[in-house]
Design a protein around this nucleic acid. Sequence first.
DNA 1: GCGATTTTGATATACGTCAATCATTTCTTG
DNA 2: CAAGAAATGATTGACGTATATCAAAATCGC
Lengths: 353, 353
Amino acid sequence: MPSPTLSDVAQAAGVSYATADRVINNRGNVAAKSIAKVNEAVAALGYVRNVAAANLSRKRVYRLAFLIPKGSNAFFNRIRDQIARVADHQSAERVTAEIIEVSAFAVASLEDSLCELVHQDLDGVAIVGLQSERLEKPLAALREKGVAVIGLVSDLPQGFRSAYIGIDNIVAGRTAARMVGMAHADSAGVVQTFVGSTDAHDHVERLQGFCEVIAKDYPQITVRDPIMTKDDPAVLLAQTRALLSQEPDTSALYNVGAGNSGLVQAIGAIQSNRPFCVVHELVAHSRKALQEGLIDLVIDQRPDVEISRAFTVLRALIDERDLPPLADLMPTIYVQDNLPADPLTDMMRAQAT
Amino acid sequence: MPSPTLSDVAQAAGVSYATADRVINNRGNVAAKSIAKVNEAVAALGYVRNVAAANLSRKRVYRLAFLIPKGSNAFFNRIRDQIARVADHQSAERVTAEIIEVSAFAVASLEDSLCELVHQDLDGVAIVGLQSERLEKPLAALREKGVAVIGLVSDLPQGFRSAYIGIDNIVAGRTAARMVGMAHADSAGVVQTFVGSTDAHDHVERLQGFCEVIAKDYPQITVRDPIMTKDDPAVLLAQTRALLSQEPDTSALYNVGAGNSGLVQAIGAIQSNRPFCVVHELVAHSRKALQEGLIDLVIDQRPDVEISRAFTVLRALIDERDLPPLADLMPTIYVQDNLPADPLTDMMRAQAT
DNA sequence: GCGATTTTGATATACGTCAATCATTTCTTG
DNA sequence: CAAGAAATGATTGACGTATATCAAAATCGC
């Protein structure tokens, strides 16, 4: 029993192919009762549009763009690699993906890039966003042109994007706190936190979630005010070093942001038993530190999964199809034992070049 | 610049469309130098076969089957739901998936089902497998017929399936041990383990991984011999109850298998501070227990991800395409804070019916 | 029941690939 | 160099949908 075609539906509904087509692609100028007849036939036969034929006929191409902060940040390298990889594979389905680099976390730069996008002929864009009203106008213009827009990793102003793909950073912070709490096993302790900057929404949210859980469920643990690091390894190295010698009662470290190589270096230098260490994002550095037992946990947002999902969601939006079943995206906890074999970290990049 | 067609390639190569087609679909009877010319043109133009057109032309349908243990096990309910969900969504791509229920963990039953499969007209099968030589003959017969075969959740004899989709259970056990170790924070302790049966490979492997890590990295922790539970909640309830009263020095519980509702019930009944609890698989029961703070961790194998992947891999095998970039499948650690919003647990099922 | 409007039917072409046919050319081999 | 084999070219009809055109029919307003 081959699946029914639109001709079958038309026949079953007692209308012509043309009318069935008018209903299916709601082109208008169809009598209400014809619509009903066709819909019944669709339901009765279990008709589903053959997307292969449809895509072929309408010469569908998916021109996608990804706006990613520039710079050699290990995390965004991982993101860029994954975009290239997925795009390469999906080229058989007529998908092209362009990576547009934007000055990191600068509203003006992002705004400019968005304005340029409007003049390009695109079908969908995924943007590592910022919460700023200045972005609303160009985003509205994009949407006006029928471009699907989603936020990636960091959200855009709500109402100006069709979806957000990324983790909830409050949840990420809460998760980190839970692990730190468990590792204290009812005994008292002091946690030193590190943040890149208080301008970064994600950092603030993580810290907020972290403090919430510690305060509520682990009252015997004290959270010290965060140290500002600008995500700079040098700062982290110096600060951690100072901390380890001056505050020996520190029982745990939690770095909300980047720059972990400095933290790891400082920890690697001490011989006595070190504090419990939690950091974010699995990249070459943090992976190595985890394997060598210099840190205990990495909370990762699975950028590879996020990218795959961005492609899937953008295509679904462009085709106006409903989404496939997608599991929720949650912060993933890595210990040295459950590391993925293929890191998709920037290690790979080094080998490839 | 629309993407080049096979006609473009033929023209660029200076051969006819027919010859280019013979090369692309290697139909044979073509001179070596023609092959070379066509391949060069393919590379030069960046030709990629339009899969929409190809699928349309060859009337591709993907008839898949999933062999899943029968019974109302919460974990396999989750699996079955996800299969139905994905199949429903992929019906637009002419994918049909049939769920074939097999008596749980019975080699004879699995063997029978496999033998029947040979007479069905299938393109791909995913099997919750067993390691038994008796399966080799029917598996070989399936492969002979050109059916793609993969192992799912539990592997088949190697060499008789094209891929295995599931976690490494030794890794899962190691991960559990790491968490238990961390939760002891250098202090001594005693862990009681529970297994369903020693026949189940996955249970044995998890236990093995668990003991390895405790022995190596947490020598101050003692692992007691496992209690046999047959995955039966009643057994777990009774045994845990007895344990909690008779062995008050127990600092952690690790259930390698199923039947967690019994364990949770026993724990819920005590008022003094309970041992650290780790179980496997996020289902309605374990999820609830985690949220209520009755257990501490759930190690999950993400069956929803596994199912999506099974579809992807089977289709790639059937089309003889290379796989899209897929992240490694690792045991996922859930605490009460990073639970997915939509559980895809059997709760959903109850609501739907 | 007239003209105007809306709705329907019939039909055609294109999309890029697959798969097949048949005639023709080129290459082997003795 | 002729006979046979191998390789190539030219062409065609699906596959199911999108989209367009034009004529015919049904419905509406009055």
